[in-house]
Design a binder for these strands. Structure first.
Lengths: 128, 128
DNA sequence: GTCATAGGTAACTAAAAGGTTACATGTTGC
DNA sequence: GCAACATGTAACCTTTTAGTTACCTATGAC
């Protein structure tokens, strides 16, 4: 898996709306765009854009069928990321987590000292 | 895991730079901000912003130590997402993938018909 | 044919994210 | 003390993303 395609997958998954679309399509294999749209408040055009992003990440397969488009979920990219991460991060999987008890004992963040501590300005600009 | 915290994790992982930071810190537990900065071309301030985002997603733990800040990787959020996804998507894990041979046989995308098919404009705006 | 339905694209606006410089505080070495 | 170093943050600019409306094509029902 190239870094570029991995970027596409992570980016596609970063949006809650897109993850929700994946959930819907996974539960309704072969459903069309309209069926996805009814679950959202945003416009159909926005859903289309999300679908393209998911398609480019190969998380969805779009298959034209007459005037409809059938949607299918593809788990392969997620599996590939999982495979890479479990091997790279294997030593952290449920083992080294013990140390975090120690880390969490560090002092809590201090509140800011005063509301007008250092007022600065780089450049003036027009108010709207 | 709340949808909000899951959003934070996915968003944090969506940036290639932030994933690279995670790789560095995982390989050098307890390293400081400077040690991370030398691996990147962007400014230290940008690295700081990335570190805050990773901290908010609880993928990193920042521990103040004198004038330095020690960085530690935390795999727990990734594990939680993995646990959720493997249970929700279990039926897709290395099984239903067979069907995709059929899906990939659908016709390839047609190239656009002509370069000046429907020139339209909603509103005029100033040229730079 | 014709009309409703499913999908597609261009053009635009607003908000968020990625990036910078300038300047500030707190800690360590000497 | 004081200089050098590590970190923190405000203010700003630029690029990307999320969202819209308007309009177009293609298909299916009749």
């Amino acid at each position: 898996m190239t870094p570029e395609s991995m970027d596409l997958v992570f980016h596609a998954l970063a949006s809650r709306a897109r993850r929700a679309i994946l959930d819907i399509v996974r539960d309704r294999p072969g459903c069309c765009v309209q069926e996805v749209c009814v679950h959202f408040d945003v416009s159909r055009i926005m859903i289309l854009k999300h679908l393209r992003i998911l398609e480019e990440a190969q998380l969805l397969v779009l298959k034209k069928a007459g005037r409809k488009v059938e949607l299918y979920f593809n788990a392969v990219p997620i599996q590939m990321i999982y495979d890479r991460w479990t091997s790279e991060y294997s030593s952290y999987w449920a083992s080294k987590l013990v140390d975090f008890k120690m880390l969490l004992e560090s002092e809590p963040k201090k509140p800011p000292p005063s509301p007008s501590s250092h007022p600065r300005k780089l450049k003036q600009h027009e108010p709207k």
